[in-house]
Design a protein around this nucleic acid. Structure first.
Lengths: 223, 223, 223, 223
DNA sequence: AATGAATGAGGGTTCATTCAT
DNA sequence: TATGAATGAACCCTCATTCAT
């Protein structure tokens, strides 16, 4: 019996990280079903069996890829959202955190859209419950923020959950537009402002904007 | 030698329609890769070979399913959108047409989201160009509407294409929320109002205008 | 009950002939297994079922194609061979008849080589016994001629059957060389002379050819 | 990471050899199209997938079978042919080498005749160019020998290429006669002599030269 | 007789997964 | 632990053949 050396442990973690990264890029490029374990093993420079010894199955590997990144995303978004004191600030931070994250994880974006945004039917959920829970908790937090906004008389009295979904979808939609565009995506700040402005005040120009115009300027002054 | 009798022709069309319907439901339920041609043949109550004699390959069948429904959707949406005289009317009709269509074609919605909203990377595009073109033309029409709104001083001067995408995404997001919900989805009109209101005027309550809709309508009827 | 009109009967025969011709060309081009009944039906401008009503099965159609042409070949060759009074004349006529026939039926040649020259193993004979018998009878006739030549002291005392096979193979080999060549094949007479000369007198030049040279000239004077 | 151990490598080669042997026998027995990969896997006592991991596809496996044996044949024949100093010696050695090879590789003979002797039309060539080239090179060597014989005044002035083809076909024809015969084939030497005699001096008995071989040898040893 | 839509057995091929080394 | 050869279930597709009209 050997006790695992610290070096061993470190290497082990590095390997896992490495395989996850490689898998993410291939899954993102080809999708789950058109990715083969051999392709992953090849690109990761491990033997086929080694991948299995680390992750058990293709499905589990895929889930781990999603789970890891979703955790990062949700943590980041949740923290940022909570960080601001006002409702508007929270909204803005939510949009900023999500947008920034996807800007930095473009290849993951495709997986996210395919899996979280358009999940397979309930019976055959490809995602483990933990991931969906995580995602739902993020959405719940956002719902809470909306709800507070409604209670404070800031937001119109709509179904908070639906509004939250709408905002979430709005950021996804925008992020998605990067995927198609081959050109360098617009600066993040512009996107953040567009979404925030649209969500808070809509597309229509108002005639007598008193305080609102101020807050809008603050949101938009990055460009 | 003989051309097919009218009856034969009619049956032929019925069979095609039948297979397309069956395929749609299975593809929607399991996705492209987890659907087998045998499942389709079985559910359609045709022999395997018969499906092939009608559609050539799994890929082509899938494309035909998408193409047929996307054509319906786009026609319906385009017509309705053009139908209204004012910009706001067009926006509202767009949302109404799309929402209504998805309400009536719930199973197709999943395919639509998977294919149009989250396309696979360029090399492996599962959709024929014609379908994507169709979709793009719908989006272009919408972009035109937005653009007109901006020119008329109704909408804020934003990137019309991005705004159009946002509105499209917003309706998708809402429609998507039906997929998860096991409960009877809310009445269509509610959803339509939510999206339209959110898009046009945002989530925030404005201080001065008590009857927002009235004053705003005045703005739009100048054209 | 209608008695078949003479016209009907005539048409029937014409159809059979037509389908056989079409089949021969396709079988020759692609081989048995890579030819489909649909291809034949299409090129023959009959419905699939019609082909079956005439020939029962792909195998039977194929056999009929071979059988018909082999019968023509064997009849022609046998008649010509018997026609000449001398052994040398018979040999020459045999070569001439076979060569001429293949010259006129180039597409059949491929089938012939594939089926008669290189038959599939005994268990799975694709040819009906009648065809093989026909072919064997031709070879027997030739063997008889050789045998007579040996008895008359004209030919060396070799195994007549083997010698006959050799001559038969020699003509096949030559005919085969036309298949590869895209250029217009050499005049038939040249080929006939080459084979006959080679078979009767070999490749070697003899020093004191007294009578032999005469007979050779007779054989070769066509060119 | 690790290169395969010598043992692994050895086994790998043995497996390839084994599968090739098994395939050859089945292909020879049933032909390409009536042989299934499952049959091969079964007889080779490997899983279906294993055969594919070794050879990629049925077509490639078939080609490898042919290629391997044709290479053996051509090497053997070319070496033997070059070995003799005189033209007649070369001719005799050519016949001997080919005949001996087929005597020892009876099952391959059928494949050889089907593929080399009766190739499918150009578009559907089942053989890789390399194999056909190999075969052509053998034939070219033989043509060279014939050509030398003609130049030395030994052979009649015929088209050397055609004569070479004729000799090649003659040996094939003879070898082929073994395929049908269930009885033990005649001793190889007899066959070799028959072909050589026939090719060099023809079937006809010459009047004057009692000891043909002697006088003829004198003709040939001038080189 | 003629038609061609419908049938379904069968074959080539892929790829997740296992396991002996 | 790491390896990768071996496995075989499962899938897409073809095509000879049948049969109702």
């Amino acid at each position: 019996m050997f006790e695992p050396t610290p070096r061993r442990k470190r290497e082990h973690k590095q390997h896992i990280r490495h395989i996850l990264d490689v898998s993410e890029s291939i899954f993102a490029e080809k999708g789950f079903f058109q990715t083969t374990m051999r392709q992953i093993a090849l690109k990761a420079e491990f033997a086929l069996g080694t991948i299995y010894s680390y992750f058990g199955s293709k499905r589990q590997l895929y889930e781990k890829v999603i789970e890891t990144k979703v955790n990062e995303l949700v943590s980041s978004v949740t923290n940022e959202t909570l960080d601001a004191p006002t409702v508007q600030g929270k909204i803005e931070n939510f949009v900023r955190a999500k947008t920034t994250f996807f800007h930095k994880n473009l290849s993951f974006l495709r997986l996210y859209l395919a899996e979280v945004d358009v999940p397979r039917p309930d019976v055959h959920h490809i995602l483990p419950k933990s991931v969906r829970d995580k995602y739902d908790s993020m959405l719940s937090d956002l719902t809470g923020v909306i709800w507070r906004g409604i209670n404070e008389g800031l937001f119109k009295p709509m179904d908070a959950r639906v509004v939250a979904k709408a905002l979430d979808g709005l950021t996804n939609t925008l992020a998605f537009s990067w995927l198609g565009a081959q050109e360098a995506p617009a600066p993040v700040e512009t996107d953040i402002n567009t979404v925030t402005e649209l969500f808070l005040y809509g597309a229509t120009i108002h005639r007598e904007p008193t305080q609102n115009s101020n807050s809008r300027r603050e949101l938009g002054n990055g460009s």
